[in-house]
């Protein structure tokens, strides 16, 4: 490959975005590629907004993706997808969870309806570039609400199959968490893969 693949990973602190991004970068390395993942730490993790810049290529120098420079936006929370849409350009594929998590700022935050946010996104992101997934519902259905990140990772995998070592990826996901959580994470990951294949025809 010649061109660097730029992936902007966004969501809310506590949703496991660092784990998701790190696994992406590791799976790219396992494929023999260079990878960088610029994380958000500290204050931002306390339920704040989180953005991780993941860059994969033959040789990647700089940590940050410029505005309009993302090839993919992966999101675990719908309003965060909107917040970081300035990283997208007309060709960017946006893969997003449909759940909205409202910050607890009484009096300052008006509740928003996911449906309205989705409509707005559809009006901005070109047809064929927006891939929504009910990742939180899928994870909750498995009895593992905290595996939402793995559903989103699974959903992104078919898109990124050319830059990731898929065998490594599956083994790595199976090492996230302990005990029963491990199995659930792997299942959540697989559900993400099959979801985008069945609904959007993007398959491994």
């Amino acid at each position: 490959m010649a061109r660097t693949v730029n992936i902007v990973v966004v969501g809310v602190g506590g949703q496991g975005l660092l784990t998701l991004s790190r696994i992406l970068a590791e799976a790219a390395m396992a494929r023999g590629l260079d990878a960088l993942a610029a994380e958000t730490h500290g204050l931002s993790q306390r339920g704040g907004t989180v953005i991780v810049h993941v860059r994969i290529g033959d040789e990647v120098h700089a940590p940050l993706i410029p505005l309009g420079g993302a090839d993919y936006i992966l999101s675990t929370e719908l309003s965060e997808t909107v917040r970081y849409l300035s990283y997208a350009n007309r060709g960017t594929k946006v893969i997003t969870n449909t759940k909205v998590i409202l910050p607890a700022l009484p009096g300052l935050v008006k509740p928003i309806e996911p449906r309205e946010v989705l409509e707005w996104l559809r009006s901005k992101v070109g047809k064929g570039n927006l891939y929504t997934i009910e990742a939180s519902d899928i994870a909750a259905g498995l009895g593992a609400p905290q595996s939402t990140n793995m559903v989103v990772l699974g959903a992104a995998t078919p898109f990124l199959k050319d830059v990731l070592d898929l065998g490594y990826l599956e083994k790595r996901v199976a090492r996230v968490g302990r005990g029963r959580i491990r199995e659930l994470n792997l299942e959540a990951f697989r559900r993400g893969i099959s979801y985008v294949c069945e609904r959007y025809g993007v398959c491994l």
């Binding site: 993790q45 997208a88 928003i112």
Partner: peptide, 22 residues
């Protein structure tokens, strides 16, 4: 010419999300 961002502003319905106590 740099890649043109799809949008340049965050719409007002997106809540501000400062970090908070867990």
């Amino acid at each position: 010419t740099s890649p043109e961002p799809l949008v340049t502003e965050v719409p007002s319905f997106v809540p501000s999300r400062p970090p908070q106590l867990c």
